[in-house]
């Protein structure tokens, strides 16, 4: 199913390309006319960075009609790429010489990289979550896991009561409790692997062969709960990553803006 390219992406893309071309041309012109093009590119870059930061402000100002966040995100992404190109135009290279500028460039690159990383995450993970067939709110995951565990333990007790055999209980205490305790197999879930399923079919269900029919029935219910928990775990990891990448992006962005402000002050005091 081919996704339609949003109009705003085309619009912003063309605008960004045109602006960059104009800036590139203008800075060439300024250089040729013995001016300092980095003033133009620098201030444009600064404004660009502030505009990028406005995306966060937009999220806090949902109550006023500031346009759709969708448009803002596209703007943010396009502007981010634009800023990277502009950064290279401004510094005239990949890596600056001054230690402070290196700090600034390093932060800038990290922000850009984390942004790209986050963007890719947000493109890749939602469908993986959807394909679990369940949907759960991130904040409710601990409660959900606790409830699944509670249910499983109820089943274990029921089984013990009903059959008088402790085989299932021993297996639960020895093996399954570890699994039900909290989210497990995080990396496999993040990268789309089925380590949880593999574990459940192996060590997780190792006691099954020693059970009678009544126990088997209840044990299979426990395994169903375990399979359900695997889905919850997947939600926990993937939703968590989709939130936590911002732990890199936002503090770094704050650093970049702060560093850029000081850079601007220094340039104005020392040179301009």
């Amino acid at each position: 199913m081919a996704r339609k390219i949003p109009m705003s992406l085309v619009l912003f893309g063309v605008l960004a390309l045109a602006s960059f071309a104009a800036l590139f041309w203008q800075s060439r012109l300024i250089t040729v006319q013995l001016g300092d093009a980095s003033i133009l590119t620098g201030y444009t870059l600064f404004v660009t960075i502030l505009l990028l930061g406005m995306f966060n402000a937009r999220k806090k100002l949902s109550m006023i009609p500031l346009g759709r966040a969708r448009t803002w995100l596209i703007f943010h992404v396009v502007l981010g790429v634009f800023a990277l190109a502009l950064f290279w135009l401004h510094t005239g290279g990949i890596w600056p010489l001054g230690l402070y500028e290196q700090l600034l460039a390093g932060s800038f690159y990290l922000v850009s990289a984390s942004g790209v990383f986050g963007y890719l995450l947000q493109k890749a993970l939602p469908s993986r979550l959807t394909h679990t067939g369940i949907e759960i709110i991130y904040d409710r995951i601990p409660a959900e896991i606790a409830e699944i565990r509670e249910r499983a333990e109820t089943l274990v007790i029921e089984c013990t009561k009903e059959t008088g055999s402790e085989t299932v209980a021993q297996h639960y205490v020895g093996t399954l409790f570890w699994y039900f305790q909290k989210p497990r197999f995080l990396f496999a879930h993040l990268f789309g692997g089925d380590a949880a399923g593999f574990w459940l079919r192996g060590p997780g269900s190792a006691a099954r062969r020693y059970l009678n029919d009544v126990e088997k029935k209840l044990f299979d219910e426990i395994l169903d709960l375990a399979a359900l928990k695997a889905h919850v775990d997947r939600h926990y990891v993937c939703q968590g990553v989709m939130k936590k990448w911002l732990f890199l992006h936002i503090p770094l962005a704050v650093s970049v803006v702060t560093l850029a402000v000081w850079h601007l002050i220094l340039v104005n005091v020392y040179v301009l």
């Binding site: 911002l246 503090p251 704050v254 650093s255």
Partner: peptide, 16 residues
């Protein structure tokens, strides 16, 4: 996240 953002700001200001 908000706290880390503030911390990053404070850290940069401190470095400067």
């Amino acid at each position: 996240r908000g706290r880390i953002g503030l911390l990053a700001f404070a850290f940069v200001v401190a470095i400067i």
